[in-house]
């Protein structure tokens, strides 16, 4: 049986990728609110996902405030798809 993607098999990273699956773009504040994570932890996990190419992170200045916008990349979408398939195998759902 295949191994679960270790990058996604973590509560917060999986939550981030799952949230981004159904939206085109979300900012840091929204992700923080939905995941109920701390800013520091969320920031670290976003960096990890970004380095793996699973999400793209765009930093911009809106008005006078910095804004971090995140979106799922095709690679991240495929990784989540694969992750769910493997999960189903583990759980004998397929």
């Amino acid at each position: 049986m295949k191994e679960l993607d270790p990058l996604l098999h973590s509560q917060l990273r999986l939550a981030i990728v799952s949230l981004l699956l159904t939206v085109e773009e979300a900012d840091f504040v929204w992700l923080k609110e939905k995941t109920e994570a701390t800013s520091g932890n969320l920031s670290v996990q976003l960096d990890k996902l970004s380095e793996a190419g699973y999400i793209s992170v765009r930093k911009e200045i809106v008005g006078k405030k910095p804004r971090t916008a995140c979106s799922l990349t095709p690679k991240g979408r495929d990784a989540l798809d694969e992750y769910v398939k493997t999960l189903k195998e583990y759980l004998h759902l397929e």
């Binding site: 098999h9 509560q11 990273r13 999986l14 995941t35 994570a37 932890n41 992750y83 583990y90 759980l91």
Partner: peptide, 11 residues
């Protein structure tokens, strides 16, 4: 939310 690992069902 933390970075803890999950069981398959929890995932």
């Amino acid at each position: 939310m933390k970075t803890d690992e999950l069981t398959e069902k929890e995932s």
